[in-house]
């Protein structure tokens, strides 16, 4: 069972993401920003983390860094889901420890394919 934590400050985006992922048979939890995600991760360990970049309190870059700093999440795939696609931002995400980058808006099938590839 693949469980996914979806982090995005936009409720509609979270719902879209949830709908898409649930329809593909994944189990989805949500967090509204980096701080909420870290709090949730204290007691949970999902298969995969999908995060937005621009969020209040703690943005995606900060979240990825904080997650990677924890040994138990060293091997957890982390996908960035953002409207941005600049090499600069991707480089930051990669240095922070992200596994891959998906551009919003996403296509359900392709998102699912991406998730399957990083989680096997």
């Amino acid at each position: 069972m693949t469980s996914i934590l979806a982090v995005d400050d936009s409720p509609s985006m979270r719902m879209l993401l949830r709908s898409a992922l649930v329809s593909q048979g994944f189990v989805v939890s949500e967090a509204e920003d980096g701080v909420a995600a870290l709090a949730w991760l204290e007691n949970n360990a999902p298969t995969l983390l999908i995060t937005d970049i621009n969020m209040p309190r703690l943005d995606g870059f900060g979240l990825i860094e904080a997650v990677r700093a924890q040994p138990r999440f060293r091997d957890m795939p982390i996908l960035v889901l953002s409207t941005e696609s600049s090499a600069e931002k991707k480089a930051i995400a990669r240095r922070a420890g992200a596994t891959g980058w998906i551009v919003k808006p996403f296509d359900t099938e392709k998102l699912a394919a991406a998730v399957r590839r990083v989680t096997h």
């Binding site: 982390i78 996908l79 696609s85 596994t99 891959g100 980058w101 998906i102 551009v103 991406a114 990083v118």
Partner: peptide, 8 residues
């Protein structure tokens, strides 16, 4: 650290 992924 984990399998990489290209843009979707």
């Amino acid at each position: 650290p984990a399998p990489a992924l290209d843009e979707v």
